[in-house]
């Protein structure tokens, strides 16, 4: 799908849906443990003062990710 992009390049405050998670091993496990799985809806709500890490809003809570970790997450615009 060409509407897909990595989470690093996603714009702030847009509703996104996760297409796939490329990370494996410990990082993949930790990402999935937090509920970041294909189909989940997320919004980038902010970036740290130095543009990295980013703050990510899921439906019920907020979490942070480094840009290098966000690279493994492919998302598309939710609507």
């Amino acid at each position: 799908m060409d509407s897909c992009l990595t989470l690093r390049r996603a714009q702030v405050n847009r509703k996104l849906r996760i297409c796939s998670i490329g990370a494996q091993g410990e990082l993949g496990r930790r990402i999935r443990d937090m509920g970041l799985i294909p189909g989940a809806e997320v919004t980038v709500v902010g970036k740290a003062p130095l543009k990295d890490p980013v703050a990510l809003r899921l439906r019920d809570f907020t979490l942070t990710l480094r840009n290098s970790e966000a690279d493994h997450i492919v998302v598309e615009e939710a609507e």
Binding site: I31, P53, F61, T62, L63, R66
Partner: peptide
């Protein structure tokens, strides 16, 4: 260690 961390309210 991955920085996957919660920002609790």
């Amino acid at each position: 260690t991955p920085f996957v961390m919660e920002l609790p309210p």
